[in-house]
């Protein structure tokens, strides 16, 4: 049963990652891209969790915590230094 769960979640997470990458490449503003890369990071963390649950180990747990630290520092830094360079508002 765990092998079918692994296959199903792999398909779901691949679709989700594709959607996040499309939003990163298309996103009208910098903040949209930051948000989408945060979601991509969450999807990576979900993949690490599923690997741990299916194979019954805890090797990736520190990696998961480090991943959330990286996402936090990255999005806070970019949001702090973002500036408005558009001609007119509301085109997002």
């Amino acid at each position: 049963m765990m092998q079918t769960v692994l296959a199903v979640t792999a398909v779901i997470l691949s679709l989700a990652a594709a959607g996040a990458i499309i939003r990163i490449s298309r996103g009208p503003s910098l903040l949209d891209r930051v948000l989408a890369s945060d979601v991509l990071l969450a999807i990576l963390g979900a993949a690490l969790c599923i690997d741990m649950a299916v194979n019954r180990h805890l090797n990736n747990l520190m990696l998961l915590v480090a991943l959330s630290v990286v996402g936090f520092i990255g999005s806070v830094t970019v949001a702090r230094f973002v500036a408005d360079r558009r001609e007119q508002a509301n085109e997002s």
Binding site: A16, A18, A42
Partner: peptide
């Protein structure tokens, strides 16, 4: 996993 898909 479906939560990730919903976010995308």
């Amino acid at each position: 996993a479906l939560m990730s898909l919903a976010a995308a």
